[in-house]
Design a protein around this nucleic acid. Structure first.
Lengths: 153, 153
DNA sequence: CTATACTCTACTAAGTCAATAGAGATTTGT
DNA sequence: ACAAATCTCTATTGACTTAGTAGAGTATAG
C-alpha cells in the first residue's frame, strides 16, 4: 500500500514551495539540499508537477519554481493521483483509474465492497488536505519563530 | 497505493476457504478455476499463507487446503501485511515495518502527520474486517439460495 | 556575453511482479 | 505394494517499474 519515493519527494517539494508561496521562486538546488532529494531526480519530478499545472517555473539566473496557484487549491489527492496513479487499493474500485478485475462477478464481490470502504477513507483524507494545510501543520509542529527559509519539513 | 495481484488472489482464496470452513478441504485446482487464478501461482500464495498460519493443508489424493482457524479470527490486515508489507503509505508511519525516512526531521514532518491519519483510517477498516465478515457479505450480496460451492466471489 | 538555472531526451542498474517449470514427497484407495 | 492425485520445494524467466544518472540544449539577469 506504499506510495513511491517519487511521490513522497513531490509532496516534500510542494511543501517547500507552499512555505515560500508569497516570496520569490525557489531553486531546485535549494529544495534538493533542504530535503535531501537527489537534484536531477527532483528536476524530473518538478517537470512532472508542472505538467499537472500545480507549479510553474522561471528559467535563467534568477530562476526557480513556485506554486502555480494558491496552496489552498492544491490537494494531496491530486498530486498523488498524478504521480502514483489510483488511490484505491484495487483498480476495480477506482473512480478515475477503473479497470475490470479478474474476479467472476464484480458486482457481487465481497473484497471489492471492503476495498471500496478503504478507498473512501483514503480519499476523504487526501482530497481534503491541501498544501496550505500542510504548511499550517509545519508551523504548528515547529513554532512560529523560525525563518521561513529554514523550515525543517 | 495499490495492493498487488498476489495480495488480491490471497484474499479471494481465503474467501473460498472461509465459505467452505465447516466442510472438507478444498483443492488448489478448484479455487483456481472458481477464481480465475493461475494454479501454479496460487500454489505459491497458499504456501505463503500457510507460513502465516492462517491455512493448513492435507496432501495426497483427498488433499487440499482449509482455514487453520475459524474465519472470525482471520483479519484482512494480517493477511495483507504478510503478503504486501506495510499498510501505511510511507514506512515512517508504519508500526510493524517502520523505517526512517530521508526527511530532515521526522518528528516535525507535516507529511508524516497526514500519512499517519491515512494509515489509521486504513488500519481501522482492515483490522476489523475478518474472513467471516467477508463471507457474510458474500451471502448478502448474492442471496442465501445458492449452493455454497457455487458461490461467485 | 557569461554564468546560472531550468528543459528535454535518453539511458541504466537493481529490484519487483506475475507467473512458469520440474522434480520430489505424501496420502488414499485398490 | 502400487498408482494416481495432490501438495511442496527450489529455480528461473520475461516484462515492467523504480530511482536514479548523464549530456546537450535553452532561456534569462546582470
Amino acid at each position: 500500500m506504499k506510495i513511491s519515493v517519487r511521490g513522497e519527494y513531490a509532496l516534500r517539494a510542494l511543501l517547500v514551495l507552499g512555505l515560500n508561496y508569497d516570496r520569490d521562486v525557489v531553486r531546485i538546488q535549494t529544495i534538493s539540499e533542504q530535503q535531501n532529494i537527489p537534484k536531477r531526480f527532483l528536476e524530473q519530478i518538478l517537470t512532472d508537477l508542472k505538467s499537472l499545472g500545480v507549479v510553474e517555473s522561471r528559467r535563467g539566473v534568477a530562476g526557480g519554481y513556485r506554486l502555480a496557484r494558491p496552496p489552498e487549491f492544491v490537494t494531496l489527492a491530486a498530486v498523488i493521483r498524478h504521480i502514483e496513479g489510483p488511490l484505491a487499493p484495487v483498480s476495480c474500485v477506482s473512480e478515475r483509474f477503473y479497470e475490470k478485475c479478474s474476479c467472476p462477478d464484480e458486482s457481487k464481490c465481497a473484497i471489492r465492497s471492503v476495498m471500496k470502504e478503504v478507498r473512501e477513507a483514503i480519499v476523504k483524507i487526501l482530497e481534503n488536505v491541501t498544501v496550505a494545510q500542510m504548511c499550517e501543520r509545519v508551523k504548528l509542529l515547529q513554532g512560529e519563530h523560525t525563518n521561513p527559509l529554514d523550515y525543517v519539513i
